[in-house]
């Protein structure tokens, strides 16, 4: 059973004074997120990431299509006992303290007073707010509020956690902590659905990705299964430096010494590196390793978004013609 399932999910907003302008924020998005996966829901600003999360939380209603969480429709109140949600640019009632707010959230889950206190204390300790728990939230920095947001999202020990831009407003240390937290949730077997446009973070923690552009899903799948293109080859050879330079210097983009008698060469995709490897071996140079260098997730993301944009332009041109 999927943890999260989107079926042809669409959302259209009518904007302008007379609501005559139509903005299709999400266009028939279908997606399955398996249990235990950490899904990076990626896309440029305005791609529809936050709209998807707001649809999943029933903060906005779909124009068409539907969604399920843990096999239940998103409108089911019972399923919200099993999920956690961190909204984008999280804000709270700033007159209360972090401790009071988490106890209030615990009250919404129906916990006893003692249980609320226990969970609030545990949650705040987990995100490093322990010492400041009795300070009013209005005195908190952006990063501290984000931590409280994460604590409230995890208060009910959720099976599925939705995080909307969780790294926003955090310093490098805070980002590292959130990354570690997501990895810990992954280790615990929880499903994490997090939206981001910071691809390094996504690459570090995700098992799956889905890429959204202008409301349309342009790619999705396991990170390992993505068709990441080979950008170059890295060859490591052991032998006399002059020989390596003589044979490989012309073909390689660069040659660098990495240890005594060991050299690394970056070779282009074409011509095939096997011929050069054979020639080096004939000269008595040992080939230590030959690895393809593939696109990073960021390269892949940029390529797919560019492809999708080009396809959209050609569709528009075809329509005009």
């Amino acid at each position: 059973m999927s943890a999260v399932r989107l079926r042809e999910l669409s959302k259209t907003f009518h904007t302008g004074f007379w609501r005559t302008r139509v903005h299709r924020a999400l266009d028939a998005v279908s997606l399955d997120v398996p249990r235990g996966a950490v899904l990076g829901y990626l896309g440029p600003n305005g791609a529809g990431k936050t709209t998807t999360l707001r649809l999943l939380m029933q903060l906005v209603h779909p124009t068409s299509g539907g969604a399920e969480i843990l096999g239940r429709p998103v409108g089911d109140v019972g399923v919200r006992r099993r999920i956690g949600f961190l909204p984008e640019a999280v804000r709270f009632h700033d007159t209360c303290t972090a401790e009071e707010f988490l106890e209030y959230v615990g009250g919404l889950f129906g916990y006893t007073v003692a249980e609320r206190r226990r969970r609030a204390a545990l949650g705040l300790d987990r995100v490093g707010i322990g010492a400041d728990r009795r300070r009013r939230l209005r005195t908190y920095s952006r990063g501290m509020l984000q931590r409280v947001g994460i604590a409230q999202a995890l208060l009910n020990d959720p099976e599925v956690v939705f995080l909307d831009e969780p790294m926003t407003g955090l310093d490098p240390l805070g980002r590292r902590e959130v990354r570690d937290l997501v990895l810990a949730l992954r280790e615990e077997g929880r499903t994490v659905f997090f939206s981001s446009h910071i691809l390094n973070d996504a690459e570090a923690v995700c098992s799956h990705v889905a890429i959204l552009n202008r409301g349309r899903l342009v790619a999705s799948g396991r990170v390992g299964d993505l068709d990441l293109r080979v950008r170059s080859w890295e060859l490591v050879a052991a032998g006399p430096g002059e020989s390596v330079q003589a044979v490989g210097g012309a073909a390689a983009r660069w040659v660098t010494r990495i240890a005594d008698g060991r050299y690394a060469l970056e070779l282009p995709v074409e011509p095939s590196p096997e011929a050069l490897a054979a020639e080096l071996a004939q000269r008595g140079i040992q080939i230590v390793s030959l690895h393809p260098r593939r696109e990073t997730l960021e390269d892949y993301f940029l390529r797919r978004v560019a492809e999708a944009a080009a396809a959209a332009i050609s569709d528009d041109e075809a329509e005009c013609a």
Binding site: R54, G78, R81, G84, F92, Q152
Partner: peptide
């Protein structure tokens, strides 16, 4: 307006 409602309505309340 302040979006404090986002957090609350994601909890098991109608």
């Amino acid at each position: 307006e302040q979006r404090t409602v986002d957090t609350l309505l994601s909890k098991p309340i109608r």
